[in-house]
């Protein structure tokens, strides 16, 4: 069943089912509204382990920080943010024009191959090819997304 069809049917389901559907479908809906190129029926990555993700995040610390812009932009507030819009950070034109809203789904694509997903991004790295590592990292990014002091 496609994500959109699941969402349509959510009204007659239990609250728990609705919440699951909401979490599952929201990224796709956001993607569709943003007019991005990621296919809406691409599966949302399964939830990862944030504790393991923190260890994976060490790979990001050469350029990123949860709470301050460095060579790369800060990560708190990332989830739900449109690409290239964190104030105070100078993005590449490619990132400014990418028209991507960061969700578990879009991050999974980007982290797999940044330069393929958004050609011209400053994030010139090969990407994380291990799907579980990506899921864990995304889980950690979700944890730090709304940490206190993030503006």
């Amino acid at each position: 069943m496609g994500c959109a069809a699941q969402c349509v049917g959510a009204g007659s389901c239990s609250r728990r089912f609705f919440l699951v559907m909401f979490r599952t479908c929201l990224p796709a809906v956001v993607c569709l509204l943003g007019g991005m190129t990621v296919q809406a029926n691409t599966p949302v990555p399964a939830a990862g382990d944030a504790a393991r993700g923190k260890a994976v995040y060490a790979q990001c610390l050469g350029c990123h920080s949860p709470d301050r812009h460095r060579t790369g932009p800060k990560h708190c507030g990332l989830i739900g943010r449109k690409s290239g819009t964190a104030s105070g950070y100078e993005y590449s034109k490619a990132m400014q024009q990418a028209n991507v809203v960061w969700s578990a789904q879009t991050l999974d694509h980007f982290l797999f191959a940044p330069l393929s997903f958004i050609p011209g991004t400053k994030m010139g790295v090969a990407g994380i090819k291990n799907a579980k590592s990506r899921r864990d990292l995304i889980a950690y990014l979700i944890v730090i997304n709304e940490q206190p002091g993030c503006d």
Binding site: A58, Q59, C60, L61, G62, C63, L115, G124, A126, G127
Partner: peptide
């Protein structure tokens, strides 16, 4: 040490591309 460790990862990620 955190900066140096991050730098290793950054270069490791850049080398293939």
């Amino acid at each position: 040490a955190g900066l140096e460790r991050g730098a290793v990862s950054a270069y490791a990620g850049a080398i293939p591309v």
